[in-house]
Amino acid sequence: MSISGCFLILFLLFHMSMNIVAIFSGEAYDAICAFLGANWYALAGTLVLAAGVLVHIIYAIWLTLQNRKARGNVRYAVTAQEEGVSWSSKNMLVLGFIVLGGLLIHLWNFWSKMQLVEIMGGHEVTLCNGDIVSPTDGSALIQYTFGQWYFVVIYLVWLAALWFHLTHGVWSMFQTTGWANALWYPRLKCIANIVATIIFLCFAAVVVVFFLRSFGCASGICI
C-alpha cells in the first residue's frame, strides 16, 4: 500500500502543479494538455498510473478482507475511540471509496473528454450544453465543469475525503517502510498534514476559482 500510495501521491503533486497553471493561464494549461495528449509517453504514463491505482485498490480490498476475517465473526458490543487514534486511520477504506467515486466522476468529466477522445482519434467534443470544444482545450472543460455548482460540491467533498485519506496515508507510508521512529512521529504527522493540506488547497483553488469565474460570464467559455 505504501509504495503504490507513494506513487499516487507523487502523481497528485504533479497533477496539482499542472492545475495551478490553469488558474493563471489557460493557454499554458492547454499546452500541457496537448503535451500530455495521445502521445506514446503520456499513454505509457497513463497506463502505469492506472496500474498504480488498481494495485492500490485491489491490495486495499484484499487486505481489508483478510483483516475482517482476522477480526472474527463476533464483534465487540461496545467499542470506544482509543486515545490519540485518528479517525481517518480507521476509515481508510471508506475514504478510499469516496476518493475512487470522485475519481470516476473526474475521469468522466475530463479524461473521457480529453485523452480518451484523442486516443479514439476524435478532434472535438460535444458538451452537454451543446458547446463543442477541442480535446486539448482543458481549460475550457474546467470552466464548463465548475460552472455547475453540483460538481463544485462533489469535487470539494471528494477533495476533503482525499485530505483525510492523505493525513493518515502520508506518515503511514513512512511507518510501513520502516522509516519512522518515536522522534519522527510528530514530524511525519506534521508533514503529512502539510502535504494533504497543500494538495487539498491547490486542487480546491482551481475548483473555487473557476466556480467564481463562472459568475463573471453566465454561460459558455470565457477565458
Partner: peptide
C-alpha cells in the same frame, strides 16, 4: 492475524 494499517490503536 490481520495486517497492520498503522492506526496506532494497539499502542493506545
Amino acid at each position: 492475524f490481520g495486517n497492520c494499517t498503522n492506526t496506532g490503536a494497539c499502542e493506545a
